[in-house]
Amino acid sequence: MQGGPAAAGSRLAARDLTLAYEDRTVVDGLDLSVPDGEVTIVIGPNACGKSTLLRALGRLLKPVRGTVLLDGEELARIPTRTIAKSLGLLPQTPVAPEAITVADLVARGRQPHQRWWQQWSEADERAVADAMARTDTTALAERAVDELSGGQRQRVWIAMALAQETDLLLLDEPTTYLDIAHQVEVLDLVRRLNRERGRTVVAVLHDLNQAARYADHLVAMKAGRIVAQGRPAEVVTADLVREVFGLESVVVPDPVTGSPLVVPGRPWEAGPAAGAQAGSSTAV
């Protein structure tokens, strides 16, 4: 399929995108334009196609139909090295080479910028040092990646993606394995990269409230299709949460940011009859 130019203000776009694993269609006829210079976050229930979409945007998965466009050109037609200079991807479950150190893994993010006559430069050194400092992994430099905790490994992989210094950054569940403090730290880092360095970011998150707090552009998916997209204040409503997640909730303003805050309905409680039955069972 020959693609035309991407929508204005969108270097990365998908047109009539259908994605499948063998004979199982996961994403069907999807259109998406990623706003330049913004943080786009994709939300939705498990197995709705979020990570599959991100894999296609990063050219890890070939479309069954439709196309992904980068700067108006089909991604499939662009040389890999050229893509790697513009587009960085952190997949959901990356695998590190056995016994590789943290410093060596982060340094691999610089490979697209190197040439046979110049394998390493001061610019590479600065990029790696900066990426490790921003992800609080400098002290881990000489440690083997496979000896780290899950949270430490996740920060190291994010450092490698940052070291690549691309204008577009795709992150598939970057807060996985992280405690709440490090989740906020990583998402604040994403916000700073966007605001201070103009990086366009697309991230998949499970936490709806974090997505609403950090996204400029929110994309809600269900069953391989986009149900709604736009500013979080426009997208996140009790009706949408019910439609997409099957959850009754109340949406109120976040007391800190003013962004939508999803409060689930009252937890299940045993009624008098259930309580009596439970008491009777205990006595037996």
Rank of each mutant, 00 (worst) to 15 (best):
Q164F: 08
T18E: 10
N194V: 03
K85R: 15
V250P: 00
V156E: 13
L70K: 03
P232C: 05
E142H: 09
A181H: 11
R55N: 13
G49N: 11
S281M: 12
P45I: 07
A56M: 07
E142L: 04
G58P: 01
H217Y: 15
R15L: 10
R59I: 02
G66D: 12
T40E: 09
L240S: 07
A127I: 00
L90G: 09
L87T: 00
A123W: 01
A215S: 14
D136W: 07
V284C: 05
T176H: 07
P91K: 10
V39M: 09
E122F: 00
E234C: 03
I43F: 10
E98M: 14
P253V: 11
K62R: 15
I78K: 06
D28L: 13
A233Y: 00
I226M: 09
T237R: 04
G9T: 03
D167S: 14
R153S: 06
K222I: 07
P255A: 01
T176C: 02
P45N: 08
D254P: 06
A47D: 14
D136Y: 10
Q229C: 11
T93L: 08
R199F: 01
I41T: 14
D188T: 15
T18C: 14
F245M: 14
G3E: 05
P63E: 02
C48E: 10
T80N: 03
L30Y: 09
P260R: 01
P91C: 08
T93Q: 14
R213A: 13
T40Y: 04
G265C: 02
D207Q: 12
P97V: 09
V95C: 04
A273R: 15
V227M: 13
A13Q: 15
D31K: 03
A76T: 10
V190F: 02
Q2R: 13
P264K: 11
W120Q: 09
R15I: 12
Y177L: 03
E248R: 10
A144T: 05
G58S: 15
V236H: 06
G58M: 04
A139I: 02
H113M: 03
R24C: 11
L70R: 05
S259R: 14
T82H: 02
W157G: 06
P97E: 06
V204P: 02
T101S: 15
R143F: 03
